[in-house]
Each structure stands twice: as structure tokens, then as C-alpha cells.
Design a protein around this nucleic acid. Structure first.
Lengths: 345, 345
DNA sequence: GACATGAATGTGACCGGTCACACAAGGCGT
DNA sequence: ACGCCTTGTGTGACCGGTCACATTCATGTC
């Protein structure tokens, strides 16, 4: 009912207080649900809040209380399917808990740049979620000062790394293992691997799972090819593999790589799955619609993001139950791109 | 040189001030580059800042000054290529200007939900960038109170809509026009269109560009098919079009739809580009690696995001030059999926 | 009837900055 | 020698909340 029309700066608790004729503290008590406020007072305050369109100022709240109800997601990229889905999952869970979500992109993996980005994120206040699938992310996670609440989204840790900090992950090792087993079970002598860049110096979880499956089957263990994250890297690797007639099955570190590999095989006249079987990782939205459609391991990135937030939420508010960060089980999705090897000549 | 080891709460300007033996205001002047500080004093203050690891508290700054150096991006989705790229562009430009970036996802287009999300974003302080390519985004843009600084990323406006607010856009109409012309120039009698959902009731800019090109060529104007955003919608539409032998060229509202269309054509035994030409929109990263690779109109989403930020930055700080929001010119990328129509029977 | 107890409310300081203003010292014109 | 402007610095209030404590009044208890 603001008759004057021009709503100047938003109402503060003191505005509400004077409107009702109580002290600002009483208003504070009402908005915080403090019990010892007389019912009639509470109602008048609530009415005034409604009337004046009062909204609690998040900035002031953060400054005064120290708690900021915010998370910042630090990531090397926002466009890749996996990264974007994790972000979406975090946002979803954060929204449900009325937390604000910030993002920071790690454009370079260079140490100083990463450190600067971590500082910026820290300045925003609140907690941190670091996607540490790549060197930049791993560096960022390492650069987070100990006193800052942080959750890392990491590859399957060989041994729970650090041990003193919370992480979430999908069981990439198991997923790679399952896909490799699937290919071997079709009769392939061995499975070649085009790797995504490892997040650390050590071999990635996906590589480990693949290697394990080969060893268990007593299959020869070809040297993994290094791809990068995008289809271009897959294409390069695929061109190499297409030259080698002994290659009948290729596992790719993600669906984008697989796309590049498919293309390279096609360009070199090798049919999929007739001559070569190809499998990917992630089950990106387009993978089901490729020709041939792509066999892949589906990973629940959105769920991973939600789990990361839940964990962080637990750290930030001791009250919030520390949800078990349910390592979601990857699901093998068999499609057209995998089949039995060609009959021996 | 904090010998005690445990760094308690971060240093404030008063800590720095007492360390140097000046008033907090002097410290404030130094960090704000105020000219009237004696050189020697400035140096001592800077040394202390360095020594104590002082960083200016963003929350306090926002509260005291009213300016928050933050933008929130409101979007219906973070995983689609276009949306994600815009976000990446915004983040890039924001980082360069040391602004923080927040995101809010519009999960539903329902009015109350959208309004709630807008309020949440407003609470975060700072400016707003709304991606209004879909009903949820358009609703959000409309729900932003007039006093809030906001930039909309919109489809090509038929007439500069509203007129009183800043927008950025790509020339979708021109892009659709160019791709359609390309297909017609190959000899196709007409071009069918699988549309993305329009952001408003009115027909989208892409539809308009397509229609214009047909009219200019005197080509028959088939009814556009309604897809949605993903490949599944394209697949449905493609199945319908595959039945009709007169269809020889299909323009799709984005690359994901085109992927679904390609798949549907393949399933129905129609070859691309032998029987049917297909073109998309956006030039997503995987489009070049499809088989056949996809003819498409490349749009500079990252640049669009940067432009959106630049515009908002100009609104927030009168000092910042209002960069011309350079309507980037879409680029026709001709690949394998388009070719001449099959010879008449 | 005096006193401890608890419910309901108010007061002042504080979070970490900024802003508007006051004030001291030095240089310069007259 | 006086006023005045410029340079360098300090003081107090304020942004909009929270927190710790003080205060008032109505009860129940002995």
C-alpha cells in the first residue's frame, strides 16, 4: 500500500520495527523464529513485513553472522557435459537449501592463476566445491587453505587421498572395468584405450579399471593412447588406431573422445561395430542418437553434484545431517557401437 | 611472519592500521588508491597489508558501499551447449573485471517459481543477466523489478522490445536466412523446418529468417514442425519427415535437433546428404565430428556472454564504457550434411 | 509479602568496510 | 603576518543485520 509510489531502498528490520512500534530486535526474533515473542506481537510484525515487502538483506546477514549460505563451484570448464551436469546438480541441491551458488572458472592450470582463482572464490565467502578432474582442478583443491570448508569432486581415489577432507566421486574404476569386460565378453582379444588427461601424474581410475579387466581376462595390454577432452583428440587417436588392423575394440575416456574415434574410423573405411567396436564414458545426451549409437557407461553427474553439496552443507552447518555421499553405481548402457569382432581371416 | 602459527580470523583494515600506527581510514585510502596519502605512509601500509595477508572483505564492502561487484546469471539450463557457453562467456568477462558470478536455474516456467528465483537472485545483490531463450527465461526477465540492473540475452527482437532495457542477441534471423538460402541454392525446392520452442508466443527469429528466405525464393512454405531442445524431439520430428519423399532439405532449430533428425533419417533408410540435406544451428563442438558432419550456422555464444556482461558492467558502473553490444555476425559452416537434392525421378 | 523464575522486550556494541566531515601542517600570494 | 588553498590524516556515523546482556513485568513458591 505504498501510496507514494516510489519505493526507495528496501525496508530494513528497523523500518518494520518502527512501523509496528517495537524494537528492531523483536523483528529479528520474529524472522528467526525465536520462541519468546508474544503471539500477538509476532502477528503484527509478520503483517508489517508483508506490508513493507521486507526481505532480509543477505549481505548484512553474512557480515553480522559470519555465515553466508553460499557455495562457489570451481571448475576448469562449464560447457563439457560432465562438468555442466555436476554444476546443475550442485545448484539444484543448493537451491533446495536456499544457498546461493557462485562459479569460478579455472582458465589456466598455471599455479599462480589457480591460486588467484581460489582466493577469489574464498573472498565470496561460504563453502567451496572444486571439480578436480583435471590438473587445474587438482591444483585448486590443493591450494585451498585448510581452514576453508571445501568438498572435492574427484576421480575414484586409489586410497582415500589426504584423508582429512571430504570428497565425492563416482566409481570410475568399476565403470571402466564393466565396459571393458563387456567388450571382452563379446569375443575381442583385447581392448584399446584412448585416455582422457589424468587429473594427476598417476594413472586415472578409468585406466586402472580397464587394465584390471584386461589382466583378469589374461588379455594383452596395449599402451593407452593419450587423447584430450574433446572430439578432436579422439579423432587424432582414432586415426592412429584405424591403421592397425588388429584393433577390434576401443574404449574411450569419454563420449566426446568416442565421437572423434567413430569419425576417424569412418573416414578410414572401418565400420562400427562390424570391424571395430567402440565404447565411451558418461552417456552424454547425444550419445544415444549417434549413428551408430554409442555403448557407454552412464555416470550420474547430477547426483554427484547434489552429493557434493549435501556434504558441504553438512560441513557448514553441523545441524544438517552429513548425508552419506552415496558413491553412485555406474550403469553399462549397451548400444549399437559394440558387437562381436569380425570373423578371423 | 605470523610466528604463532594459528591464523585466526583474517586481518581487517583496523588490524593493518594499528600495525602501521595510522588510522583505519588511511588504510582504506591506500587500498582504494586515493591520491592524498604520503608516499612513505602508503608504502608502510602496503607492506603491512602484505605482511598480514590482508584481503578486503567483499561482504563488508558490499554492505557499506552498496555496490557488490557481482552478477547472477539466471538460466533454465546449464548443460545445453548454447546456455553453457553464454555462462562461460559471462564468467570470463566478469573475472576480468573482478566480479563474482552467481547462477540460478529456473527449473520450472511456472510463474510463482520463476518469481521466487528472481527474488533469490536479487537478494544476492549486484546485477542480473537473464538468458531468455525459453518461456522460463522470458518470464524471469519480465519478473525483474524495474529498479534492478538487468541485461537480457534474448532472441533477435523483432522490434527492440520494451526499449527501456538493455539486451544482447545474436542475429538469429539472419543466420536462419543464410542457412536456408544455402540449401535453396543447392537446388532444393523448399526447406522444411524443425523448430526449437519459441521463447514467446510469437514466432521465433529463426523461424522468421527461414520463412523470409523461402518467400524471397518463391519456394513453398511448409508448416514448421515443433521440436523441443534435445535430440529426442528432433528424432520424433525426423521420423515424420522421413515418411514424406518430397522432403529433401531440413533446417533444424539447433544442432541437437539436427542430430535427432539425422538419426531418424538413417533409421528410415534415407541417406544424408544423398536423399535429404540437413542443417543445424549453433555449431556445437560435436557437430563437426558427426557422420555426416553437420552443416550449421555458427553462433558466438561465448562472445554473447561477454557482451552481456560488458553491458551490465556499464550499467552498474557509469564509469565503465558502455561497450557496443556487438551483434556478432553468424557464420555459415558448410559440411557434409548438405548437398544437392537427388535427381528428379 | 519477599524473592527467584521465566517470558517478553529493549539497549548497546559489533561485523568490516565506506562516507562526510573536521582538523593540522606546509606553501604561497599579498 | 595574515588568510587561503592543498596535502595528509583522523573521527564519528552508517550500511543492516546479529549477539550478549539488561530490563520489565507477571507468576509461582516459600
Amino acid at each position: 500500500m505504498n501510496v507514494t509510489g516510489h519505493t526507495r531502498r528496501p525496508a530494513s528490520i528497523r523500518d518494520v520495527a518502527t512501523a509496528v512500534g517495537v524494537s528492531y530486535q523483536t523483528v529479528s526474533r520474529v524472522i528467526n523464529g525465536h520462541p519468546s515473542v508474544k503471539q500477538s506481537t509476532r502477528e503484527r510484525v509478520l503483517a508489517a513485513i508483508d506490508e513493507l515487502g521486507f526481505r532480509r538483506n543477505a549481505t548484512a546477514l553474512a557480515l553480522a553472522s559470519g555465515r553466508s549460505r553460499a557455495v562457489t563451484v570451481l571448475t576448469a570448464n562449464t560447457t563439457h557435459y560432465g562438468y555442466a551436469s555436476i554444476l546443475q546438480g550442485v545448484e539444484e541441491a543448493a537451491r533446495a537449501a536456499s544457498y546461493a551458488v557462485g562459479i569460478g572458472v579455472l582458465e589456466s592450470a598455471e599455479e599462480a592463476a589457480v591460486a588467484a582463482e581460489v582466493r577469489r572464490a574464498a573472498d565470496a565467502g561460504g563453502g567451496l566445491i572444486v571439480i578436480a578432474y583435471d590438473p587445474a582442478g587438482v591444483g585448486a583443491l590443493a591450494a585451498v587453505p585448510a581452514e576453508l570448508p571445501v568438498v572435492g569432486v574427484v576421480e575414484t581415489p586409489a586410497t582415500p587421498p589426504g584423508g582429512d577432507r571430504p570428497w565425492v566421486w563416482t566409481d570410475d574404476r568399476e565403470a571402466a572395468h564393466a565396459v571393458t569386460r563387456h567388450l571382452l565378453s563379446l569375443g575381442h582379444e583385447t581392448v584399446h584405450y584412448v585416455a582422457i588427461p589424468s587429473s594427476t601424474r598417476r594413472t586415472s581410475a578409468r585406466t586402472t579399471g580397464w587394465r584390471q579387466a584386461l589382466q583378469e581376462a589374461g588379455a594383452p595390454e596395449p599402451r593407452p593412447l593419450q587423447g584430450n577432452w574433446g572430439p578432436a583428440g579422439g579423432h587424432r587417436a582414432g586415426r592412429r588406431l584405424a591403421q592397425d588392423p588388429s584393433v577390434t575394440a576401443i574404449l574411450c575416456g569419454n563420449d566426446d573422445l568416442a565421437l572423434g574415434v567413430l569419425r576417424a574410423l569412418h573416414e578410414n573405411g572401418r565400420s562400427v561395430p562390424g570391424d571395430v567396436s567402440v565404447a565411451g564414458f558418461d552417456d552424454a545426451p547425444h550419445s544415444a542418437y549417434l549413428t551408430p549409437s554409442l555403448t557407454t557407461a552412464r555416470l550420474d553427474f547430477t547426483g554427484l553434484g547434489r552429493a557434493a553439496f549435501a556434504l558441504l552443507h553438512g560441513v557448514l552447518e553441523q545441524s544438517a545431517p552429513i548425508a552419506p555421499h552415496g558413491v553412485s553405481v555406474p550403469e553399462l548402457v549397451v548400444r549399437e557401437s559394440s558387437g562381436p569382432p569380425p570373423a578371423r581371416v
